[in-house]
Design a protein around this nucleic acid. Structure first.
Lengths: 417, 417
DNA sequence: GACTGTTATTCAATTCGTTGGAATAATTGG
DNA sequence: CCAATTATTCCAACGAATTGAATAACAGTC
């Protein structure tokens, strides 16, 4: 826990910092990097040479600005590493293969319905192998696999996560999906709440690159949330931080509505099957997110009504987040279309001022996620990348705890920063 | 922001780690420290020698366990450093002088009533000088001054905090109290929300030493909260993280109780002046926290009724904290007596199970703060100590940003780890 | 009581990444 | 064409952690 450090770890960290600075602010020259990192130019030169050797960065053309020697610009090499992300939800499995620059090189999508764990394992392995093959990669050339699941989840001692969602995934209790996949694919596997994964993706490739404290409100087939603090994903003690969907609708019992079994928590208002049912009662038969988007575009009354109701609850959640966490920003995204998410954001923005108990001067700003509907899959795909490259403070410490990804013996790490 | 590091910072950090390990797990031998920190025994020996030179640690007797050479035990030297904390609230100003081991060596308390900023400045400087003199210290031998104020607050560009509380502190708008004190006393000054300060105190000296993720619910003359994440205090983007008192009582508007101007946020149920008024309406005249404690001891019906009401709202807040943050524990403390806080905790523990929407397996545990009624003052006093000794990840980085404490030119730092 | 294995601590030499200064190269501005 | 400026690399040096050896002190065993 309270471990020291030494110059070996210093180098590991500085390598990651140089990589990170290029990723976030690039293209950059060696001198630029030195200014950003406050490292000496000599040190930067050495570190860059090493990154070039690993083919993680590449030299661009020489560019001269003002007088002085022209600088050689450095950018990340997109083909420096690949990772695969699988986003599992109650109705679908989406897979993406991304490169180091965050480009989605391949994408697959399958509709599913209450699959059994073993069926799902086969489906997942098939997807991973198919996408790797398409990219012309051996499995051991893939940096790792990220797997996003709808929360809540449970973590065992080794840090591996298990689904805890008896309603959407009956028969999945205590299924060690991550271990299975590691065994089969022989690569690092990261199982994570898809909301937090989406937040990591936004932090890594989206608007979150410049924001180190934000909350991500994730609209999947339910409502989830992920938390980035000090630039790092925050899982919480049991891995369920940000599970705002489970907050009771009515916080105090002495209010006039008593708690009913039917409507206990906010998330139910964002449950897609329930929304379909609600629309069906109004005479509109839909069953997919695309159709919902079309309804909004057409100005469907029942759908707009739902958005009003939903944003009312959403406003409450935003308030809770504001006061408990005081983040710099709140990001809205997920699998719902940008039109729907944007509509909810507009409504929340209108409701918020009158709901804040007293005039706050500094309020977090809201922004729409940049990743679009594949935010979840892209997010989990970044988890292996993040593990390898992120300049987390942890990298500096000697703590050699067993990581949760637990790469088994045979896997040769793609890179060893 | 994304700065590198080098071996100078490595040493600074390792020095702090050794100090911290002794503080938390001590007394420890050099060999013990090496095992904890994963540093080599030689490195530890060198670092300990340096700490001994600074008189920050001291050698105890030699102790032999089993075979082998006996080890010399090391403990912190309580007199290695002193700091002063002032806890300001609407009705009082409490000051403590603490040593490095967290012992309160001197304590002062003054009742106040809507003081002007200049009056308060004089009062504070007087307290600081009095306590320093009693301890036989020059002002420049004090590591620093921590100042706790009831939130919310506002931070300027330089990181200095300003009170934003027009009701309890009229005429204090835009008063740079921290700068004034720095100017007058010529020592580092840290202005912080007293709830967060109490959390830091609990983390540093109390049960929080072993817990690195917890939320501190602070009962002052209002309701506040402080957040420790990854062992570090979390201020939030505007310095107001944890201000749970400002959450609306009823989260969703479509509930049967509409929002009234009179009862908008949860904190009002924990507002002491309002509690006094409530008891007065019931025929009981009290005006201090000690009297409230006595009422509970005597089983006063109105007071017990308030505790029932209050814990109902508290339960809601605990739920919000559980789901947004997922901390390891929640700490209850502040200026209310342990009897009252304990009573509230008991009631919350009874209410919680039936209010959680569905069966959670891992729930944060609750514990009573160890510091007692002076938690706030003790907490702020630890802020300067924390700044000097805490092995925060930041210490490892080259970022030489202007710190918020902003020690001016003349002050010679007590120690330079 | 001498011997052996174990543990704590320090001394001396080594290692390794960062650093500072000097050197080289390329470009702009006058 | 020359001076100033900027980017980059070569080289020697520094400093902190590390490794290995040495010393010391103790418990248990024969």
């Amino acid at each position: 826990m309270l471990t020291g450090t030494n110059l070996v770890y210093t180098k590991k960290f500085n390598l990651r910092i140089v990589h990170e600075v290029i990723r976030v602010y690039g293209p950059l020259s060696r001198a630029d990097i030195a200014r950003h990192t406050e490292l000496s130019v000599q040190t930067v030169s050495n570190l860059v040479k090493e990154l070039l050797g690993h083919r993680l960065v590449q030299e661009g053309g020489r560019r001269s600005e003002g007088r002085g020697a022209p600088s050689t610009s450095l950018t990340l090499n997109p083909d420096g590493a690949y990772a695969i992300g699988l986003d599992l939800d109650r109705d679908h499995l989406t897979g993406v293969l991304v490169d180091l620059a965050g480009n989605v090189r391949h994408r697959m999508n399958v509709e599913v319905e209450t699959p059994s764990p073993t069926e799902m394992l086969e489906l997942m392995c098939g997807m991973v192998e198919t996408m790797a093959t398409r990219q012309g990669l051996q499995l051991n050339e893939v940096a790792g696999l990220g797997l996003g699941v709808p929360g809540p989840m449970h973590r065992d001692k080794g840090g591996d996560g298990y689904l805890v969602n008896p309603k959407a995934f009956p028969g999945w209790h205590d299924i060690p999906l991550a271990s299975w996949l590691r065994e089969r694919l022989n690569m690092p596997v990261f199982l994570e709440n898809n909301a937090l994964a989406a937040a990591v993706g936004e932090r890594w490739y989206g608007a979150g690159r410049q924001i180190s404290n934000f909350f991500y409100i994730y609209f999947g087939s339910g409502l989830g949330g992920g938390l980035i603090m000090n630039g790092q994903p925050h899982e919480g003690f049991t891995g369920n931080a940000g599970e705002i969907g489970y907050l009771p609708t009515v916080l105090s019992r002495d209010s006039a509505n008593p708690l009913t079994e039917d409507e206990p928590h906010v998330g139910l208002h964002f449950n897609m099957p329930r929304l379909y049912e609600r629309l069906r009662r109004g005479g509109t038969i839909v069953g997919s997110l695309e159709e919902l988007d079309r309804l909004v575009l057409e100005g469907h009354a029942g759908m707009l009504e739902w958005m009003d109701d939903a944003s009312d609850h959403l406003t409450a959640l935003v308030l809770a987040i504001e006061y408990v966490l005081d983040p710099e920003a709140i990001c809205f995204g997920g699998r719902l279309s940008d039109r729907i998410v944007g509509g909810l954001m507009d409504r929340v923005a209108r409701l918020l001022p009158e709901r804040r108990p007293r005039g706050k001067v500094d309020v977090p700003r809201h922004f729409l996620a940049t990743a679009g509907a594949d935010a979840g899959a892209l997010g989990v795909a970044t988890l292996p990348i993040y593990e390898i490259f992120a300049p987390a403070p942890r990298v500096l410490l000697k703590t050699r705890r067993v990581t949760s990804n637990g790469q088994s013996g045979r896997h040769r790490p793609v890179t060893s920063l």
